[in-house]
Amino acid sequence: MEKRAIRPFSGDTVTLVLMIALAAMWILPTIWVISLSLRPNMDLMRSTAGLLPIPFTLQNYIDIVSVSMTPRWLLNSAIVAIGTTVITLIVASLAGYAFARIAFPFKRTLFVFILCGLMIPEQTIIIPLHAMITDWGMHNTHAALIAPRVAMPVGVFLMTQFFRAIPLELEEAARLDNASRLTVFRRIMLPLSIPALTTLGIYTFLQAWNDFFWPLVSATNSNMYTVTVGLSSLQGNFAQTEGLGFIMASAVFASLPVVIVYVIFQKYIVRGIAMTTGK
């Protein structure tokens, strides 16, 4: 404990009080919005003041589940985010294994070619991607929302790094028993890489769930909206005061899955940030 305290600015009470005050400010908007979502719309037309949900109602949430499109959008988001995650984990770990363990011609060149993909952000290819999917007649499908995200090479990069760090001996014993590459991969490498797969999975899931630009231009039919795009379509009604509590409840409701994932996998998210930035 003493060791920590000698690091400057992290041990004293003044710093702690300042940090608590700043954190309170930081979380205030969220608490206020959650509280708005628990108040009747009629009441909010009079005043939005106060941080406590008085009078209290669950009506906004009941409305979301019973009459709104939000459950449908959540389902779309879930299909897209889970689909993207599962497919990314499969293709990235397979490719990562090949780069880490199998000798083949032009390996270095191919690896660099794939690393180049890291330099192409989503925004710079969205126009041609849209033109291509239009030609294929594939807009407003889950597949069109999933496939471009699976093509992002960060997962291959992470899995290659990870497999390289696993000691060769574990694999060689099995190879002597004439096990095939696929068997070695499934029986030995995959079980060892559960932490890496979890990290990559959480990262992919959050990115896919929160993606905005691509679903905005590809999923134009309101039945195919992801919840991120659907919520932005609700903002058009923002001017009308009647639905304020309802809109706030939709935002809270839509955020629950990512917040739950965050709370459960906090440790992996922090590690993922370190991994994806090469620290």
Binding site: N210, F212, L231, M248, A254, S255
Partner: peptide
């Protein structure tokens, strides 16, 4: 607390801040 807003989508964040 400081990290949580990071996992929210841009739509939710802007909804909160427009309010």
């Amino acid at each position: 607390i400081f990290f949580t807003s990071n996992v929210l989508s841009v739509t939710v964040v802007t909804l909160i801040w427009i309010m």
